[in-house]
Computed example of a mutant assay.
Amino acid sequence: MSNPSFGELSINGLWKNNPALVQLLGLCPLLGVSNSAVNALGLGLATAMVLLCSNIAVSLVRGVVNTAVRLPAFVMIIAALTTCIELLMQAYTYELYQILGIFIPLITTNCVILGRADGFAAKHNPLVAGLDGLMMGMGFALVLLVLGGARELIGTGALFANMQLLFGPVAADWQITLVSDYKGFLLAILPPGAFIVLGLLIALKNRIDERLAERARASQPDMPTQSRRVRVTGVIE
């Protein structure tokens, strides 16, 4: 099987085959914790790290794992890596870990990770599998960040609040307050707001894809049509 290029992996992970906007996988954590930028970014980075490491690990063991136990083996690898990420968050970002709660262990059952492990990493070498995991993870994390930032901004009138929970005291003053006396918009930070904002993001991506396709068709030169004349000659005796 031919290996895709770095550019193809990047475009697929970040845009064309984005797991959140195109594949619509992993929607439970995507909608459950994206009420603020710090929560979304924390879970997005954790998922991306598990996706990167699991793709590499699955690719390394793909040749020695029996077909009958392939999926259970992949789940065990993902669960072990998720536990490592969970322990790291408990050690260094404990308050954020408490806020994210059950969504950190649920990374094990994230369809994005298992799907890439079985559908891609098990068929490619570790380098290509790792690049695919990184791009898919970054695509998922970016959608989470945009979704969380938009909901936080609409709901509270501020952006990047409590970023010290993820990056430490250096990020304590990263908050950007756009409207000082904003009364708040509760719907944006409630679960229905997540569905609404995600739907708008998907619609925006589809519209951009349509415009790009229209420009691509418009830039192609018209193919001249050549008419052929067929002469029929008859011999009369």
Rank of each mutant, 00 (worst) to 15 (best):
K123I: 05
H124C: 05
P126M: 07
L127W: 13
L127R: 12
L127A: 13
V128D: 07
G130V: 12
L134P: 00
L134N: 04
M136V: 13
G137M: 11
G137K: 04
G137V: 13
M138A: 15
G139R: 00
A141E: 02
A141P: 00
V143W: 00
V143I: 12
V143P: 01
L144E: 05
L145N: 02
L145Q: 07
G148W: 02
G149H: 07
R151L: 08
R151N: 09
E152T: 03
L153H: 02
L153Y: 05
L153M: 13
I154Y: 01
I154M: 11
G155P: 03
G157P: 06
N162G: 04
Q164D: 15
Q164F: 03
Q164G: 15
L165T: 11
L166W: 05
F167L: 13
V170T: 14
A172H: 14
D173R: 14
Q175Y: 01
Q175S: 04
Q175E: 14
L178W: 13
L178C: 08
L178D: 06
V179T: 12
D181V: 07
D181Q: 14
D181W: 09
Y182G: 07
K183A: 15
K183T: 12
F185E: 12
L186Q: 12
L187R: 02
A188L: 11
I189F: 05
I189T: 15
L190H: 14
P192I: 09
P192S: 08
A194L: 06
A194T: 05
F195E: 00
F195D: 03
I196S: 04
I196E: 09
V197I: 15
V197C: 12
L198P: 03
L198W: 11
